[in-house]
Design a protein around this nucleic acid. Structure first.
Lengths: 359, 359
DNA sequence: AAGAGCTACATTAACGTTAATGGTGACGAG
DNA sequence: CTCGTCACCATTAACGTTAATGTAGCTCTT
């Protein structure tokens, strides 16, 4: 009834009457083993149901064949898609994924660093909660390769794989202005992170380029007061409350750029309740192209983010770093473009498009 | 420039002039160590920046202090919330999380089993892709404790922690009937999994209890032909196409129970485009209470699922199993009730409720 | 035919940790 | 004074794997 003891190389060795090392080399496909012997050993290994012990192997090889992934919140569609890609790509390259969820919480980040160090992961993919960097510095100082994902930490000398939010916001804003809006609003997350900063920059660049006067622009931050422990960090609820005031004040021919599609949900509801028509008198553009974006009425114009590409590229970059350990390669910054998907929410004075959205 | 060699017990031992074992016992808080000596050792450990090597410890202790989590798709809000809870609860109990994403793909499940066995995880939390069980049987036979989450595998003698979908569907259907609908539709996932079966059962029980005649009922399966590798497994697109036909045929005073909220998105769009009013002539009830449910127009009535509770309970159950290894405790089946959140989509002949939804 | 070189295996050591067992000095009891 | 006890620490072995080194037997050379 006791759990069956695991089959080891020793078991196979005893069974076939050879040494442990020969069995190891045979199964590892190395030379200096007679092919007939190798076949015999492999057959016996199969028969006994041998599975190599990764812990023991990692211990002696000095590499864990594991990458740590520190994510803020898997409920964010961007990150959930990214996790899938990371796990898939990692497995192709022979790496397992050790997951830690920070929930935008600094204490959890410290826990993550501790966990990574204890396991001796070869590298870590990190979506940081701004702005502390000391713990990450410790992790890197301990010899763990690290790649930031999506969010940058300017103070940290570390690779970054993410999205060109500045350009995406720039293009989204231009699109908003092209629809003929006269008043422009920005609804952003109230977080001190690089992604928000980049989107705000792109927003400003577009406004400057088109000579939009300051009085035609208003920037708002949606407070991210967390309600419970396990709620979404970017609740539509917060945006909804803010948008209720907006729905009462906003003049016709207005455009709203929202930092993420969840906020857009709140805006939709607030404006709908106020009897104001999105896509007609008010244009809305979001970020993330969440699964629901194409199915709202009207469809939500949104910037599609290549989360899978980001995840796969981040793994590749990290594994490359692991490969050339120690060599102080210069900091890499890989960014992917967003893709503006135009739908009914930003096609003024037109009925909602029938197409679920295409690039 | 080379990565700094990791600090080991030996380093501390040499530094303080004691044996490795004494240092180990001192740091482990065990007896047979002078308190003054212990303090001195701890100080030196801190000074050198010692971090215990989990691999080495796991190897000698014979337990990995790791639980494997095999999830089908983190983009499903239910699973993403569950992952968070699992990771959090696991960390409290001292367990790390090794994540594998199956993407509803059997090959990935085989890969997951292999990974779990190689790592020698103490236990695994599994959301299975029906209906093969052989590989799971192998995993359990190898001594890995296992708990199924959300989806059951009747053929497997294994704990299950999930949702009482039968009861939830029963109640949701009763609610639908209570709103006065005369024709009832069921839109379900086309998957051979226990959750779908349970919901269908609950649906039928409610119909039977109210004596709804067969000609007033229609059951439809939304084909889950995967479009690309990394799309959602339950794309609203599939439901949308199906609902387009429905929107043309469905008589007034109809009710539609959909297996998940993503499908509801497709239904909303199809009916909206057909000029039919949800919540007025057609009632819709979904499953999952996805973040967008409260923000659609009208708000989507949906069954809220306690994903966090399921995740935490699954970890607890697994850890309990690990604790009493080998003792063939009987199969446990823990299920949590869903919570029907009534919103505008199922309040016939009434304007959309102003409240974002409460239990 | 003897040394060189090769093949095919065995032996030994190491990775960092914990558990089991050994040993030494101080102290108290008889 | 001697023996046992206890506190404290050292020594040894073990977990399962891989790498480095050792060795026996064979073949090839000259």
């Amino acid at each position: 009834m006791n759990p069956p003891r695991r089959v080891t190389l020793q078991d196979i060795a005893t069974s076939v009457g050879l040494s442990v090392n020969t069995v190891s080399r045979a199964l590892a496909g190395k030379s200096a083993v007679n092919e007939a012997t190798r076949a015999m050993i492999k057959a016996e290994a199969d028969r006994l149901g041998y599975v190599p012990n990764t812990m023991a192997r990692s211990l002696v090889l000095g590499q864990a064949m594991t990458i740590g992934v520190v994510i803020t919140n898997p409920s964010n569609p961007f990150y959930s898609r990214m996790i899938s890609a990371v796990e898939q790509r990692g497995s192709v390259l022979g790496y397992s994924v050790l997951l830690v969820v920070s929930e935008e919480n600094h204490t959890n980040e410290l826990r993550a660093v501790d966990s990574m160090r204890r396991w001796g992961v070869d590298g870590a993919l990190v979506v940081p909660v701004q702005p502390e960097v000391e713990h990450w510095r410790r992790l890197m100082a301990a010899g763990t390769e690290m790649v930031l994902v999506n969010r940058d930490l300017p103070e940290l000398d570390c690779d970054l794989v993410g999205i060109d939010y500045e350009r995406s916001a720039y293009e989204a804003t231009l699109h908003l202005l092209d629809t003929g809006v006269e008043q422009v609003y920005l609804l952003e997350e109230d977080l001190q992170i690089s992604t928000v900063r980049a989107r705000v920059d792109g927003f400003h660049r577009a406004l400057a380029e088109r000579g939009v006067p300051p009085e035609s622009v208003r920037e708002l931050r949606v407070p991210t007061r967390r309600r419970a422990a396990n709620t979404l960090p970017w609740e539509p609820a917060e945006a909804y409350e803010l948008a209720q005031h907006l729905a009462a004040d906003v003049p016709p021919r207005s455009g709203i750029l929202v930092g993420n599609d969840s906020f857009a949900l709140g805006v939709y509801r607030a404006f709908s309740e106020a009897g104001r028509v999105i896509g007609d008198e008010v244009a809305v553009v979001g970020f993330g192209d969440h699964p629901f974006a194409a199915y709202l009425a009207p469809g939500l114009t949104s910037v599609r983010l290549p989360a899978e590409q980001v995840g796969a590229a981040a793994v590749d970059q990290l594994v490359a770093r692991i490969g050339r350990r120690g060599s102080a390669a210069p900091r890499a910054r890989i960014s992917f473009p967003g893709d503006l998907i135009v739908r009914g929410s930003s096609t003024h004075r037109q009925p909602a498009a029938a197409d679920p959205g295409s690039s």
